[in-house]
Amino acid sequence: MNIELRLFARYREATGVDHERICSAAETISELREVLLARGDHWLVLADERLCCARNQTLCSLDSALCDGDEVALFPPMTGG
């Protein structure tokens, strides 16, 4: 499955990645996160227990199922306002 990954704020800075096309067998966002964590040091920032995510620009839960072509964003809790 092709996934368009986007990272923001602290996660973007720690990994040095703001945007990446990933080909993965992960079936949920949670599984995709495991794949990313396995990349090592810089990616451990994603172990954050307050990690939030969006699928196709809509907030969702980590166990959301993925479809080919999905845009998946991982980010820390939002701090607007």
């Binding site: 923001f8 704020a9 602290r10 800075e13 307050r50 969006a54 907030l59 964003a73 980010f75 820390p76 809790p77 939002m78 701090t79 607007g80 306002g81």
Partner: peptide, 25 residues
């Protein structure tokens, strides 16, 4: 809602430090 449900993130520079800090709710 703006504080918690809109994808915005604040990073502050403090006068006492050169390292910016991402805010945490």
């Amino acid at each position: 809602q703006l504080k918690t449900h809109i994808p915005l993130w604040k990073r502050e520079c403090h006068t006492a430090s050169t390292t910016p800090v991402w805010l945490i709710p």
